[in-house]
Design a binder for these strands. Structure first.
Length: 367
DNA sequence: GGACCCTTTCCTGGTT
DNA sequence: TAACCAGGAAAGGGTC
């Protein structure tokens, strides 16, 4: 009970502080500024430095997973205030949780604890943590560069990485795939576009991610709005007259925009993973691809897309292409027939087979 | 700078 | 009717 009292105090203090410094309120609109994009269902804090940045609460610059109980409360307080919610109906005794616990709350649990605010909190947390997966992926990339390890030790993530936190600040970017298509729990990673009320889909800290998912293409992008708005400018349909666009790949970003987005990237970053390698990596990590793809005949290299659009979205995310679809992905797959990287599997929808020019999928090779 | 490669995008038509 | 498949065509972007 004492804990509950303490929590209430923190809560009150925080709200008081916010009233006193209304101007200084964290610009976490932030968490909703891109939110109009229902496809993405995400938004990220702006990276534009603001005069108030010095007054941002601690939780703003921390990963939710690492939030202390106090920071969790501050975060809750912020949203209580933001939504003009009556905090008296919140069960404070249930708020005594750290970020780790918070991140594993289901939507239903959030509702139970926070009432109508539960949905809001769940969504906001989801937004932040979806960004974090990208942070994690980035972290993995750095890790991979030094260790050549395919997988990341889970404990490493749980301990955190101060350097990577900085990266998070710099590079948050919404993850459409993860936000809409993944229910990603520690130890399980399965897409589920329809499930918005199940387990907390925000966290993937227990997941191990194939090394090829870590390359440049999947790196978080700069999160400032002006840049982000230009990221997929070429990918929008109907951007030419008569609602039709020219054939071919749309022009990429202007140099300025690219610089903005990729200031972190090496100018000579190697070519990203090829599509077939990306597909292969999903397949050879069954613990991650549950629900995405499956082997039909492992020995023969026959596999099937279970959630074709989800895979396409993931591929699109990797290539920074929000308009990727299975239709397009499958066209690229069909080009592999000629090169014998893939073989046709006639009469079976969504089924492909690795060809003689592919590698790295056979069990013998993996051993 | 240009060739080449690897997609990406659009499209038409066919199949399930 | 929708989803998928097949493959031509055109184009962008990265690498060499």
């Amino acid at each position: 009970m004492a804990g509950s009292c303490e929590i209430s105090n923190i809560f009150s203090n925080y709200i008081s502080a916010m009233y006193q410094a209304d101007e200084g309120q964290p610009s976490l609109d932030v968490l909703g500024q891109h939110g109009n994009d229902s496809t993405l269902g995400l938004s990220v804090p702006t990276s534009q430095p603001s005069a108030e940045s010095a007054e941002k609460p601690e939780w703003f610059s921390e990963l939710p997973y690492f939030w202390t109980k106090v920071q969790v409360l501050e975060w809750i307080s912020y949203h209580v205030e933001k939504n003009k919610y009556d905090a008296s109906s919140i069960d404070f005794s249930c708020c005594n949780m750290d970020g780790h616990t918070l991140c594993h709350c289901t939507r239903d649990q959030m509702r139970l604890i926070f009432g109508p605010l539960g949905d809001e909190l769940y969504d906001r947390l989801h937004e932040i943590t979806s960004d974090e997966l990208n942070w994690i992926i980035d972290l993995l990339e750095k890790e991979d560069a030094t260790s050549q390890e395919t997988f990341l030790d889970t404990t490493h993530l749980e301990l955190g990485n101060p350097g990577a936190k900085d990266s998070l600040e710099d590079m948050k970017f919404p993850s459409p795939f993860l936000s809409t298509d993944f229910t990603c729990l520690p130890g399980a990673m399965s897409p589920d576009s329809s499930d918005t009320s199940g387990q907390c889909s925000a966290y993937c800290l227990g997941c191990k991610i194939p090394s090829s998912w870590e390359d440049d293409g999947i790196l978080p992008q700069h999160r400032s709005r002006p840049c982000r708005d230009t990221v997929f400018a070429g990918g929008k349909k109907g951007d030419t007259k008569h609602g039709k666009r020219k054939r071919g790949r749309p022009r990429k970003l202007s140099k300025e925009s690219r610089d903005c987005l990729e200031s972190r990237k090496s100018k000579h970053s190697p070519r990203g993973t090829h599509l077939w390698e990306f597909i292969r990596d999903i397949l050879i990590h069954p613990e991650l691809n549950e629900g995405l793809m499956k082997w039909e005949d492992r020995r023969e290299g026959v596999f099937k897309f279970l959630r074709s659009e989800a895979v396409a979205q993931l591929w699109g995310q990797k290539k920074k292409n929000s308009s990727m679809t299975y239709e397009k992905l499958s066209r690229a797959m069909r080009y592999y027939y000629k090169r014998e990287i893939l073989e046709r599997v006639d009469g079976r929808r969504l089924v492909y087979k690795f060809g003689k020019n592919s590698s790295g999928w056979k069990e013998e090779e993996l051993d």
